[in-house]
């Protein structure tokens, strides 16, 4: 099971990830789970999800936008943003948009190629959960939140940039 860091702790992950290729038949095969589904699944299988005994959350790839989710955004408990490779920086902007433009207050989870050395910046952009890659040391990842004591810019946790505080 992939390791999850949430709110600065190592946690059990209660969500089951559905990759892109999955169709609604998977719901019949495994009853009673909580599924993290791709955006397309979310958009296409509303009826199937409604009749399933379990919760749903959504993940977006780095080229997908939160505005495609629509009005239900705020009722979704988790929105995960994917990193196909760690050098793809689009999900940093997507996380900020979720928090700042849409005011989303649920969990924003980093998914995919999520490494220790990205965690500090990710957390400043509004991610509060990290499904770290299988080979990452969770204890080392916890220390990443303390890489820097302060920063110049506005962030989700500290909207005032340093120049308004110094």
């Amino acid at each position: 099971m992939p390791k999850l860091i949430k709110n600065g702790q190592i946690e059990e992950d209660r969500w089951t990830l559905l990759k892109e290729a999955s169709g609604p038949e998977v719901l019949q095969a495994v009853p009673g789970k909580n599924f993290l589904v791709p955006l397309q699944f979310w958009q296409r299988y509303a009826d199937e999800m409604a009749s399933y005994a379990g919760e749903f959350a959504v993940w977006l790839d780095s080229d997908e936008r939160a505005e495609e989710i629509g009005d239900e955004l705020h009722s979704i408990p988790v929105i995960a943003l994917n990193f196909p490779v760690f050098t793809d920086g689009r999900s940093y902007s997507n996380a900020r948009e979720l928090r700042e433009r849409f005011g989303y207050r649920g969990e924003i989870r980093a998914l995919g190629d999520v490494l220790r050395d990205q965690i500090y910046y990710l957390s400043r952009c509004g991610f509060d959960a990290f499904a770290i890659r299988y080979d990452q040391d969770p204890e080392a990842c916890l220390r990443a939140f303390e890489d820097f004591r302060d920063s110049y810019q506005s962030s989700i946790a500290e909207p005032d940039p340093l120049f308004r505080r110094r």
Binding site: T87, D88, G89, C125, Q153
Partner: peptide, 14 residues
């Protein structure tokens, strides 16, 4: 300089 230094959103630009 200060704004761009360690800007968390723009460390992995294209």
């Amino acid at each position: 300089r200060q704004w761009s230094t360690f800007h968390p959103e723009f460390a992995y630009l294209p």
